[in-house]
């Protein structure tokens, strides 16, 4: 855990408009997004963002449409230039890279998956998947060999010679995923990669991504507007609103202790039994109780409800590996299912 973050974003600001420098001064002096737009015509895209992105983990950035998610992720590969702040990749300032060095970084260091797939319509699936290697100047036979492997891994074996328009949306995004995997980069940037897909297909893709992640341990930055998706994938969750981070941390803790009415509103809509885990609800061990059974700390509350058959008088012991680390009372569990109600929600409509 002591290891330095793969990507560090430090006090990042982005302002869209004709004179961002002077608008930046006003923002730093405390002007808000709406006021800035009304007074100067500049759009505050990102405001003072600082995030540490851990190596080998999935960092999910969540926010409503227009909250600046796409703008943020495009700063990591500098498709968008910041107005102020730093982006460090492996401790190195990515903003100091020259054109050629930046291109090299994009070719070998990071890959990206897009909401609208953005495949090349005039190239076969195989050539699309091999794009990153083609850009690097690797020979056709070698890059096709690599692309075959990854297309097969994402479940598209046999479709190599099709064209993108012959595939369904889900399959096209598998090509997008294979294209990113073929580049064999450490960092994968995914901008609402699954948002355009049907719910069932989306769930399949999430499963595939998690499997791949266990196997490859890439550093993934995943953008979504969907909390269920965020909770399913995230090791670290960042919540964005109007271009600013309003809470970030371990997803379970955001769920149990939201710090902002905006997040509470988000959180109240989800199936908590399915996403909350025993670890977030358990209490320290109490020797005097008899336990109805042993459960793991990462079991969902839903599985416990099934296990207890709905009986709230039970207690379970929480065991990690062989060691007991806590206990869980079914009454606490039921309480945890009800979202914390804030003052904001009681305001008259």
């Amino acid at each position: 855990m002591a290891q330095a973050p793969k990507i560090q974003i430090r006090n990042l600001y982005k302002i869209f408009g004709s004179d961002p420098a002077s608008a930046l001064e006003q923002v730093k002096a405390g002007m808000g997004k709406d006021e800035l737009l009304a007074k100067t015509g500049h759009v505050l895209g990102l405001e003072n963002i600082s995030i540490d992105i851990r190596e080998g983990a999935i960092t999910v950035v969540m926010g409503l449409s227009g909250s600046g998610k796409s703008t943020l992720i495009r700063h990591i590969n500098r498709l968008i230039e910041p107005t102020d702040g730093q982006v460090l990749i492996d401790g190195e300032d990515a903003l100091l890279l020259g054109t050629e060095a930046l291109r090299e970084k994009r070719r070998t260091g990071m890959s990206m998956v897009f909401q609208k797939f953005a495949l090349l319509p005039h190239r076969s699936v195989l050539d699309n998947a091999a794009l990153a290697l083609e850009v690097r100047g690797i020979s056709q036979s070698e890059r096709h060999k690599e692309a075959y492997v990854w297309l097969d891994r994402v479940g598209l074996g046999g479709y190599e010679n099709h064209y993108p328009h012959q595939l369904s949306g889900g399959m096209q995004q598998r090509v997008g995923l294979a294209r990113a995997l073929t580049s064999n980069s450490d960092i994968m940037l995914m901008d609402e990669a699954f948002s355009a897909l049907d719910p069932l297909i989306r769930s399949d893709m999430q499963k595939l991504l998690l499997e791949l992640h266990v196997e490859l341990k890439k550093t993934i930055v995943f953008i979504t507007h969907d909390l269920d998706e965020a909770l399913r994938l995230a090791d670290h969750l960042v919540i964005l609103k109007d271009g600013a981070v309003i809470q970030q941390g371990e997803p379970q803790s955001i769920l149990t202790t939201p710090t902002d009415p905006y997040i509470e509103a988000f959180v109240s809509d989800i199936n908590r039994a399915r996403v909350l885990r025993v670890r977030s609800v358990m209490t320290p061990l109490n020797q005097e109780i008899t336990y109805a059974g042993d459960v793991g700390p990462d079991d969902t509350l839903e599985s416990l409800i099934t296990l207890s058959d709905g009986n709230t008088s039970y207690n379970f012991r929480v065991v990690e590996g062989e060691i007991p680390i806590g206990q869980i009372d079914m009454k606490d569990l039921v309480k945890a299912l009800v979202p914390r109600v804030s003052a904001a929600e009681h305001q008259p409509l």
Partner: peptide, 14 residues
């Protein structure tokens, strides 16, 4: 399609 252009930029095309 600007999305496609952005994608190939992201993969470092010259």
């Amino acid at each position: 399609d600007q999305d496609v252009v952005e994608a190939v930029n992201a993969f470092g095309m010259s």
